[in-house]
């Protein structure tokens, strides 16, 4: 197991470097972070030249990548241009926990919802429940995330109001002003209000797809010979389904969930944008908008690493669930 893990991790390093390289080249096409500076009368030309040298902008692009990569590895992530006076590291570590919070909530919520719903849909194939769940999952898969966010906002922040006249759910942001120093519980409750809509919006897409796939994996398993064997043994239907069918249907869903991870990160970006959540996704988009090259690059790299780690985790879970996987 340990050697297997080590080997997998070693395999992932070139993937991370390759992905970073691609991101670097694309972003290099976009941003000339100095164009804005030159126009800014407060910044001296000498400083710009110094910065250009510091970041390797006086070098050809492939050398610049190595210079950048070298300094990132040693922890020098450069300044943030989006928030002058802060380093990219500070900006990112303020945004990262928020995104992780949103994404882990969405992840747990989606898995807990879609796996049982997909299984039920398969077990009751062609029933009313199955048809409604199918309709629901197509609804989820076809809904553009950002538009669904806007719709939710219209319903819960514009139409539905509390008796006091305040929107039922806040239309954006992450915290009511003044709640920063509140006690833990009220602060979490406050945070919860802000996260309900984004998490639902973000989950809808994954849940839709996963329910559909879980249903078809489960249907596939239900027609396997070993289920007939299990029934011929005289096992209860409960054992047949929960012990024999369910576990086998989970194997392909693990791969599927791992594959959809980059999509979740992308979805999180646009959801954060719509709901004005100061997370990584919004940070990347704003950094790109403002040509904040260092911040955008680091944020993209971290997102990629996140995806790669998620894939690794999926591999490990997979090898636990499926005994046919050998570590050799």
């Amino acid at each position: 197991m340990r050697t297997y893990l080590t080997r997998r991790i070693l395999q992932l390093i070139p993937v991370i470097i390759g992905a970073t390289l691609i991101a670097f080249f694309i972003l290099s096409l976009v941003s000339d972070p100095f164009a804005a500076m030159i126009e800014n009368p407060k910044i001296k030309l000498a400083d710009i030249v110094r910065l250009k040298h510091q970041w390797g902008f006086d070098l050809p692009i492939y050398l610049r990548f190595f210079k950048w990569f070298g300094s990132v590895v040693v922890g020098n992530w450069g300044p943030s241009l989006l928030y002058p006076g802060y380093s990219a590291r500070e900006v990112i570590f303020r945004a990262l926990p928020i995104t992780l919070q949103v994404m882990s909530l969405e992840f747990i919520f989606s898995i807990l919802l879609s796996i049982p719903l997909g299984a039920i849909s398969a077990l009751k194939q062609y029933s009313k429940t199955d048809y409604s769940l199918t309709l629901f999952s197509f609804f989820g898969m076809s809904m553009p995330t950002f538009w669904f966010g806007l719709m939710m906002m219209i319903v819960f922040s514009v139409w539905l109001k509390r008796p006091s006249g305040v929107p039922l759910l806040p239309p954006g942001g992450i915290q009511t002003p003044g709640m920063e120093s509140a006690a833990f519980l009220p602060r979490m409750l406050d945070r919860g209000q802000y996260l309900i809509m984004p998490v639902i919006v973000l989950s809808l897409f994954s849940v839709g797809g996963w329910v559909r796939y879980m249903r078809s994996f489960m249907l596939e398993v239900l027609h396997q010979d070993y289920l007939r064997t299990a029934r011929a043994k005289g096992l209860t239907e409960r054992t047949v389904i929960y012990k024999h069918a369910f576990r086998n249907a989970l194997i392909p869903i693990i791969t599927l969930i791992a594959l959809s991870f980059p999509g979740i990160v992308s979805g999180a970006a646009i959801t954060e944008y719509v709901f004005n959540i100061p997370g990584m996704g919004r940070l990347v988009l704003s950094a790109e908008l403002k040509n904040d090259f260092p911040t955008a690059m680091i944020a993209l790299t971290l997102s990629t690493i996140l995806v790669v780690i998620a894939n690794l985790a999926a591999d490990v879970v997979y090898s636990i669930v499926d005994p046919r996987i050998r570590y050799s």
Partner: peptide, 30 residues
């Protein structure tokens, strides 16, 4: 009655056993 008074074996030994459980598990279960 199934598995107790009437036992049954099938054509495809390759697919008739559940791949994710040990054979010991699958026999003792019966």
């Amino acid at each position: 009655i199934r598995g107790a008074e009437i036992g049954m074996i099938f054509q495809e030994p390759m697919t008739s056993l559940n791949p994710v459980y040990t054979i010991g598990n699958q026999i003792s279960e019966a």
